[in-house]
Design a protein around this nucleic acid. Structure first.
Length: 478
RNA sequence: GGAGGCGUAGCUCAGUUGGAAGAGCAGCUGACUCUUAAUCAGCGGGUCGGGGGUUCGAGUCCCUCCGCCUCCA
């Protein structure tokens, strides 16, 4: 018994492979020089022109002494025509042993069929790689959600729009990098393994460094290292890479996700605001071709300028002008009426923020900068000059999702220590002494910003599950 | 973690009240030199997610485990 006995498909294809081998074909062939990708070759189509192309055989229409078949690569599908008289008796017989899914290379000349389809008349062909398992069905494609993620390669083969999106994702990432570079920002790489996770409030993944017998954490944010670089004199830096948070899976959460963090010395929250407007509209325009996304109720218009509203004004606008003047009991009642669960010991700020997160945030469809958030929510940024109970910050909301928070960064080491101690009062060990020490050496005033890239791409492409914008989303191991 | 839904051929899916496991595509055999979801004729293909139970009899009902989806925490 061998594993080729597993099912009739593998067995049949194995048999076909052995037959081809007998006829002198190498089932897992060699390099093949093609004139170009299928779309490029098609772009230069001319009657009688000689070309070579390679791809995966996706459909085969056998008609006695001639065969029509489709080749596919990531760019296109192209029809080839194989005639017994043209290629010769043995190569024709061998071609009939090919299976859907095999990679082949072909050489021949262009012609146009009676029905007007650009086609390659094959002079010779070679086997590049045998597929021992069949592809998903050609017409319905692969729909099984689990299989699509666990075997993404099958998804990419049978659902062309999936591949098209990930090409756009790659272009968007590339545009973000070149845009920031053109503005004078320096891309840097900081540790993904950190002795102490910081820069955000989230559960980290823990791992162990054997040689040093010490626990390490996958980063939840690169922030504290990027700020060290500001102290070191890099005045405009960004990092575009993965963060890890030890949380569950959902439509909007993958435990590893792509984050862009940007820091600009001598700038502030206003500078960040300008930068994110320019960055997002640039990517929308160059990669997705429009500032308008979707239709109907949830259509998003990215046309500048974007709305800006202080947090408390927004709350008053939705909950009534006297929201902050009422007793806390009344606020709790209203939260309960909205179907929210609030704890009896929550204060006004906590109840209000619950309402904000659960009911108000999701209604902010067109880009909205929510500014002046309560200090308790954000420990690492500065308070406003005119009011030290609110933070000089924005949260950019698009499509009902938080896309990017931007700050005027806190560079006062004394206040920073107080904030960190206040945040984790029970466990003073969690104050990152090394970071506070760095601040004591003097960090320039700066604007800083984080951009959730996966969510941004969901917005720009109109895709509503994070799994569909990540090539290999995490799933429970089988 | 909680509630609900789903899991049947390689793929996409049916399966009635508990009574002989089905279709299309894919595969195999044959015919066919302009087809394109090729067509025509014929033939094979199943651990009904795993395990247990009820029953004369389970894809179907019950329990349990696994995985996926949706909503909630």
């Amino acid at each position: 018994m061998t594993d080729t006995d597993q099912n009739e498909y593998r067995q049949q294809r194995h048999t076909n492979m052995l037959e081809l081998q007998k006829m002198g074909y190498k089932p897992f062939g060699e390099a093949f020089e093609r004139s170009g990708r299928l779309a490029d070759v098609r772009a230069d189509f001319a009657e009688e022109k000689s070309v070579s192309m390679a791809g995966r055989l996706t459909t085969v229409r056998k008609m006695g002494k001639s065969i029509f078949a489709d080749l596919r690569d990531i760019t296109d599908r192209f029809q080839i025509y194989v005639q017994k008289n043209q290629v010769g008796e043995d190569p024709f017989a061998a071609f009939k042993l090919l299976d859907v899914g095999d990679h082949i290379g072909v050489k021949g000349t262009f012609f146009t069929t009676r029905t007007g389809e650009q086609t390659l008349k094959v002079d010779s062909w070679t086997l590049l790689s045998k597929a021992l398992l069949p592809l998903p069905e050609k017409w319905h494609g692969l729909k099984d959600v689990e299989a699509r993620y666990r075997q993404r390669y099958l998804d990419l083969i049978s659902n062309p729009e999936v591949g098209a999106f990930f090409v756009k994702r790659s272009q968007a990432i590339s545009e973000i990098r070149s845009f920031l570079r053109s503005q004078g920002f320096l891309e840097v790489e900081t540790p993904m393994m950190q002795p102490q996770p910081g820069g955000a409030t989230a559960k980290p993944f823990k791992t162990h460094w054997n040689a040093l017998n010490t626990d390490m954490y996958l980063r939840i944010a690169p922030e504290l290292y990027l700020k060290r670089l500001l102290i070191g004199g890099f005045d405009k830096v960004f990092e575009l890479n993965r963060n890890f948070r030890n949380e569950g899976l959902s439509r909007n959460h993958n435990p590893e996700f792509t984050m862009l963090e940007i820091y600009h010395a001598y700038s502030n929250v206003g500078g960040m605001k300008k930068l994110i407007c320019d960055l997002i509209t640039h990517v929308a325009q160059t990669v997705f071709g429009s500032l308008k996304i979707g239709e109907g109720e949830n259509a998003i218009d990215l046309t500048l300028p974007w709305r800006e509203v202080p947090y408390r004004d927004l709350v008053r606008e939705r909950m009534g002008d006297d929201w902050y003047e009422q007793p806390i009991e009344k606020a709790r009642e209203k939260a309960l009426e909205l179907g929210l669960e609030v704890e009896p010991d929550w204060n006004m700020m906590m109840v209000t923020h619950e309402i904000y997160e659960k009911t108000i945030e999701r209604t902010l469809i067109n880009p909205t900068f929510v500014t002046r958030l309560p200090m308790e929510l954000i420990p690492l940024a500065r308070t406003c000059e005119d009011d030290d109970t609110v933070i000089d910050v924005f949260e950019l909301e698009i499509g009902g999702k938080e896309i990017a928070p931007g700050y005027t960064e806190l560079n006062d080491p004394i206040k920073q220590r107080q904030r960190l101690e206040g945040q984790d009062g029970d466990d003073p060990h969690k104050v990152d002494e090394d970071f506070v020490t760095a601040l004591e050496h003097g960090m320039p005033p700066a604007g800083g910003m984080g951009v959730g890239i996966d969510r941004l791409l969901m917005i720009l492409s109109g895709i509503d599950a994070i799994r569909d914008v990540i090539l290999f989303p995490q799933l429970r191991p089988k």
